[in-house]
Amino acid sequence: MKRYHVFALNFMLVGVLAALLVCAQRFLDGYSIQILNLVAINILLALSLNLIYGFTGMFSLGHAGFMAIGAYVCAILILSPDQKAMLFLLEPAYPWIESAHAPFVVAVFAGGLAAAAMAAVVGFPLLRLGDDYLGIATLGFAEIVRVVANNVPRITNGALGFKGIPAYANLWWNYGWCLLALVLIVRILRSNTGRCFKAIRDDEVAARAMGVNVFRLKLLSFSLGAFFAGVGGGLLASLLTTIDPKMFLFVLTFNVLMIVVMGGLGSVTGSVIAGAAVTIILEWLRFVEDPITLGSVTLPGIPGMRMVVFSLLLIAVILFRREGLMGTREISWEGIAAWLRQRRKA
């Protein structure tokens, strides 16, 4: 299979996606479009965590923290100064916070950059830790971000958070960013740098012996992942139009981790498929939490049931199919072509 074949097929795939989005926008109701938007953001988030954990082997539980940073930076930049003047009820915002304003694309990018910069700063000391210690330390970092967000009302409006964030994050922005992340991450993973990420995951000692500057590459992977987590946070802020510190609890990281584990650690296609599937099922399961009316009988909803189901699902995956949906396998055009050839032969 030639390179330009792959390129043409990818181009077609993007075209099909665009056509589908046009159709979705025209024919689907607001609720379904919202779910589609969440699918894009969750795929983006899953890819970013998979880069850090699945491909580089750093067990990070700090995603909610990076998302919070991206969300706050983005929200502050896209809220108009007038809106901010109204929003900050507890204490007035710092003048530079109130006057800061930027177009959406810049705001999202800035959110990503802020998260990446923070990742570089905390990664510098933390990435020396291994395995579970890294996990618990990054989790601690995310909690600190949340507590700080609660306590700097002149920047974040404290526990009240922001309301009425402009809803710029439509299907095009979300899928655009998602696609950008997908292409960049796949490109990096296919380059020699990406091979070194995987080498670090497989055997850090051997990677060091082979001249790989493990620490620098870990920091790179961690910051890149945090960048896209920040982007995801920014998009989410604009999609939901409200944010507050309570939104960035550990459960947010848990949801992303669930997608990554279910899709397969170290599989981009796995993250994409699981990102879509988990989001849709999570939304669909909302019905068990809402009251159901059948004729004259109203069955009460059961709050918490969704997460009961999902945590059970996660445990089941870890117990019975640890490699998730895809393991480290990928679906690629080359793979499909080889499979078709084999079938024709048979």
Binding site: F254, M307, V308, L312
Partner: peptide
């Protein structure tokens, strides 16, 4: 691998928490 058990533990934690909510 050790992290598998850790993920399982995180799953159990959320499971029990939400069973309690239910």
């Amino acid at each position: 691998p050790r992290i598998s058990a850790l993920i399982s533990a995180i799953g159990v934690s959320f499971f029990l928490q939400n069973v309690a909510i239910v």
